[in-house]
Design a protein around this nucleic acid. Structure first.
Lengths: 140, 140
DNA sequence: CGGAATCCCCGATGATACTG
DNA sequence: CAGTATCATCGGGGATTCCG
């Protein structure tokens, strides 16, 4: 039978297991980029009413207009976000998570919950690692 | 009280919610990079016995020696992977997940499981989106 | 207001060669 | 075998400007 880990088929060979490169990687790469999780988080805060572009932007202090536009476009392309355009003057554009987008929230929360519970330990390990590295290279 | 989403504190303002930029982002960014999940997956395949550098490398067809070294170093720095160096000739180096690293597997699997169950729908949405875009820009 | 277009920079990643 | 050093490349993403 076929083993699998993290959505990836595993081929057993004489020299050991080999992971199959496959499509889920491109999904993970998109969701793991600099802004996507933050944008999804903003939309998740307002599950019942769509959010305006400007409201999302104000919720993510450091995002540029360009990157918010691109991120929302990617999410829309993936069917995770719906875009509603109202051709008024000035124009109004609203976004909301689709059913598929909402279906991601619980699994995502499981993972970000682990991060929330662990990141302080990780930070401590990083500091220790960097300190040892510095003292190890003491001659410098 | 303080709301929170995906590990991120939410500040309520008159103009709407604002996400707090915070450290968990750097953890998510590291784990979401091109190779980390694959390396963790390889090590997870062998929970009881450490894996040699070369075995990990063979399991991830397209990774370069350099990127595997860098990725393992980052994971070691974060306390997620332990490195064992045996100064033989030729040298042998083995890696394994730490307890902290193993504690990540279930939450991670929750998320990658969602991807595994959803990516075909996402692929379909992408294709449709791209087709509509092409026909919409029909003049070109 | 929301977004497209342009320019530009830097860091992530790959290829290659060398070392203990 | 595992790791480091160096160089080249490519794309993410920021700043700015113009558009409907």
């Amino acid at each position: 039978m076929q083993r699998e880990i993290n959505g990836r088929p595993v081929i057993e060979t004489a020299r050991g297991p080999v992971l199959t490169p496959c499509a889920p990687g491109s999904v993970l790469a998109r969701l793991g980029d600099k802004w996507t999780i933050l944008v999804v988080s903003m939309l998740a805060l307002s599950p019942d009413t769509p959010m305006r572009f400007g409201a999302i932007r104000r919720g993510i202090p450091d995002i540029s207009q360009r990157m918010l536009t691109l991120t929302l476009r990617s999410l829309e392309r993936d069917g995770l976000v719906a875009r509603h355009y109202y051709p008024e003057v000035p124009p109004r554009v609203e976004y909301e998570l689709t059913a598929r987008g909402r279906s991601m929230l619980d699994p995502l929360a499981a993972f970000t919950g682990w991060i929330r519970d662990t990141w302080q330990d990780i930070e401590a390990s990083r500091k220790e690692f960097d300190d040892v590295e510095r003292s190890g290279t003491s001659a410098n």
